[in-house]
Design a protein around this nucleic acid. Structure first.
Lengths: 194, 194
DNA sequence: CTCTGGCTATAACAGCCGTCATAGTCTAGC
DNA sequence: GCTAGACTATGACGGCTGTTATAGCCAGAG
């Protein structure tokens, strides 16, 4: 039975997420993902029969759920605390990777559909963004922010953080993240105290 | 003399910027860029002897200058007008490409340096972001915003728009751009009236 | 007219890509 | 102990990658 093999599968997904967040999807080969996870190439196609697209999709969802978990927990202390944790999480990734890593969800979102059909990985990226926004917006509403305002703010926060993470990598500096952090925190604090 | 050949060179750069904004840098081959610009492959290496990196660098700078020109012009009517134009510019690109195209600068920024050296294209992306921020920040200061606040707001605007453009592509909707537009416009309007 | 030099055309190179097929290994359940 | 099925090892496939080299074209200068 596939019992003790689950760690192997998860290792591949986690490793794929990391590599995609650094090099982008199309610059990351399945062979490299396998090697990075110390798994044989054959195993990748055993666990992910639909190939690279499936692996990318699972990597996106994996990251999405991981971030959402942290977000959910910290939002219990209110939107300001949640935002701070969200910012800190990405700051840690960017700085500790020496500006090599970013967000795999953004990396996958930046891929043109070959035809007119949207690849599942891109759809998964959209769902992850929506999930993060929903968590933030719900917390804002619970703290007195009007619904539409809460939704718009949540979108702004997620998009701004994603953009800032990319910007930090290009500039090889965490300054942009600290700057937007200050602005966003003031904005959120002002939106809930009413 | 290289006189009438300039259009060909520029066509390659502009085409490269467009393709990179859609598929990302590493998913865009030099052969495809040449074909897209109706130029022979040999010409690419004639005009850009340093290869793909040089072409990517010039594509980033080309886009940067093109946007900066529009930004400079519209900022003459004040930060609010400038922001509106900035948002409208990207909205047009995203919508008119049916959510296929985005920002080539962001696409290039999301590329891990192979070693510890930063590729010139990534450095160019950082410079372009800094340029856009500088234009916005200067306009804000001219309208009474305190210097540090102006710089932070400029960073937030550029990063938020970049992130939102990517988000719109994933969601295949312009809604996120309209949402952040509303929030950013309120923020900027509030920052200049003192 | 000749000739020069910017540009093009063509082919080749080594190497990696995603994917698939097949045969082999090992373990868990009977 | 044996068998089934999950996993691994290996190798191949056609195709595309960045890059380079070389020979050819063709307008414009002298």
């Amino acid at each position: 039975m596939a019992e003790r093999s689950a760690p192997s599968r998860e290792r591949i997904v986690a490793g794929a997420a990391d590599m995609i967040s650094r090099r982008g999807l199309s610059a990351t080969s399945i062979r490299e993902m396998a090697k990075h996870a110390k798994a044989p190439l054959g195993s990748t196609y055993h666990y992910f029969p639909e190939g690279k697209q499936q692996l990318a999709t699972e990597a996106v969802r994996y990251t999405g759920e991981w971030v959402a978990r942290s977000l959910r927990k910290e939002l219990e202390s209110g939107p300001v605390e949640g935002l701070r944790a969200f910012l800190a999480l990405w700051r840690k990734i960017v700085v500790e990777s020496d500006f090599h890593a970013g967000c795999p969800v953004l990396a996958v979102a930046i891929e043109e559909p070959p035809a007119d059909e949207i690849p599942p990985a891109v759809a998964a990226a959209a769902a992850v963004f929506a999930q993060w926004e929903a968590l933030l917006a719900a917390s804002l509403r619970e703290h007195g922010t009007e619904a539409e305002q809460a939704a718009q703010l949540a979108t702004l926060v997620v998009a701004a953080v994603e953009g800032t993470v990319a910007m930090c990598r290009a500039k090889r500096s965490a300054q942009p993240l600290d700057d937007t952090a200050e602005q966003l925190q003031a904005l959120i604090a002002g939106a809930i105290k009413h």
